[in-house]
Amino acid sequence: MTLQSVSKSFGTGPTSVVALRDVSMTFPQGTFTALMGPSGSGKSTFMHCAAGLERPDVGAVYLAGADITKMSERRLTVFRRDNMGFVFQSFNLLPSLTARQNITLPFLLNGRRADRKWVDEIVERMGLTERMSHLPAELSGGQQQRVSIARALVTRPQVIFADEPTGALDTRTGTGILHLLRETVDVYGRTLIMVTHDPRAAAYADRVVFLVDGGIVDEMRSPTVERTSAWLSRSDV
């Protein structure tokens, strides 16, 4: 996945905010990238543009050889359904559907039959086998987040986006989730892009990209908790 000179601003006139300025970045297949930066620096906007949820003002976003910024709303939706998965900070499950139905929701929307073996494998890996017929309200936060990850994986997307996936979880549960996310890259070869504020979470990534005021200011390979923490305290002025 590649972003080319992407810019995005919100609003017009005096209240206008530039959220992204001329950002270019490539995410090679099978890598895990963490996006970090102070609040309001444009991390979420970056991710939304990359996922085609928000249209950039200028610039292009390529995935599987196609420029998704040029697609019609409908085509983009279908493309996103097949090629991207999402894990959000708040778990965003449909309250009326059971865990299994939430996981297979993309198939329901596709009108395709779910690949049972694949679903069962993911469910087992997420440790959700016992919880499949429960409604979201009957699941803990960690379990709900695992359902979201399972849903993101189920269509075998090329890229998975995660916006602060551990933000609402305690450290131990969060660690479990991060292990699972790492596995999606190592075992299934997915490309993972994760927004986080937590240096411990960033340490699971292959590299960390730092955003400040809508621009990429630095990049760090093989991050550790200490190095990212140090970087953050430096720029957090």
């Binding site: 409908r74 359904r81 965003n92 309250p95 929701l105 993309p106 929307l109 849903r151």
Partner: peptide
Amino acid sequence: ETAVLRAVGATGG
């Protein structure tokens, strides 16, 4: 809830 559906890939239709 509608927004979730849309994010997961449901078209407007």
